[in-house]
């Protein structure tokens, strides 16, 4: 394992090192010490490496990640794993707003709570939140799955497209065009698999499923008041 001291090396040097790991390199496991809430930590990675951040991270931690497995031992600022392509980002604490925003693939696991707009514009990412999510989560969510083991704030799934939402607790309110849908066996199976992969000990049978009513897919005057 290679240890990198963020405070001593600075953001650029740390990211450059992580971004330049080649396929033949033996260095595959990294521990980042003293992250001090720095922004843009471990962003733009594109290698099958393991990166553990020992402390809190600022905005956009693991942003646009491809293939890497990143663990944050602490809390994360805005936009953790934003636009992730593949790989995995795990946060042991809480995450701020826009967690997993516009993510296209990979898995984001937040052990604690996530704030507003979790999974906004998600495009294929899977997000599993151990706690609750704030308002406007899964806003304009296009694809992928958002799993919330706690409660969801107001306007969950507003203007949702084809993403699938699973919530175990209470939903304060559903946003425009988002409706509860039946949990069929295939949904129980996919949720169960997702919970296992995320390492969250919850029973898929306790969740409800939400998704798009597909009523706003075409502009229609009778729906003008819905938006």
């Amino acid at each position: 394992m290679s240890e990198l001291d963020v405070a001593a090396l600075g953001l650029r040097a740390v990211n450059e090192r992580l971004q330049s790991v080649g396929p033949e390199s033996n260095e595959r496991v990294f521990l980042l010490r003293n992250p001090m809430g720095q922004h843009a930590l471990a962003c733009g990675l594109d290698a099958e490496i393991e990166v553990t951040i020992d402390g809190h991270a600022g905005y956009y931690c693991g942003g646009m990640n491809s293939r890497a497995a990143i663990t944050v031992r602490g809390h994360c600022g805005v936009g953790v794993a934003e636009n992730m392509m593949s790989g995995c980002v795990r946060v042991t604490g809480n995450a701020s707003q826009s967690a997993g925003a516009s993510g296209q693939g990979g898995l984001l696991v937040i052990a604690g709570d996530a704030s507003a707009r979790c999974g906004i514009s998600m495009k294929g990412i899977d997000i599993v939140v151990g706690g609750s999510v704030g308002h406007m989560s899964a806003f304009m969510a296009q694809a992928g799955r958002l799993v919330v083991c706690g409660d969801a704030g107001d306007n969950l799934g507003d203007s949702i497209y084809e993403a699938r939402l699973y919530v175990r607790g209470k939903v304060a309110s559903l946003g425009a065009d988002c409706v509860e849908k039946p949990m069929r066996p295939e949904h129980l199976a996919e949720l169960d698999a997702l919970l296992r992969t995320a390492g969250v000990g919850a029973d898929a049978a306790d969740f409800r499923r939400y998704g798009s009513a597909r009523q706003l897919y075409h502009f229609h005057i009778d729906h003008a008041g819905e938006y």
Binding site: E16, Y59, Y60, G63, V78
Partner: peptide, 25 residues
């Protein structure tokens, strides 16, 4: 969307720019 999903205002934009610079060296 008319607003970016993960930043609002110039202070956030400054951080977003740093992230894009970090990703593109």
């Amino acid at each position: 969307a008319c607003r970016h999903p993960d930043w609002t205002g110039p202070d956030d934009l400054a951080i977003k720019i740093v992230e894009l610079r970090e990703i593109t060296g």
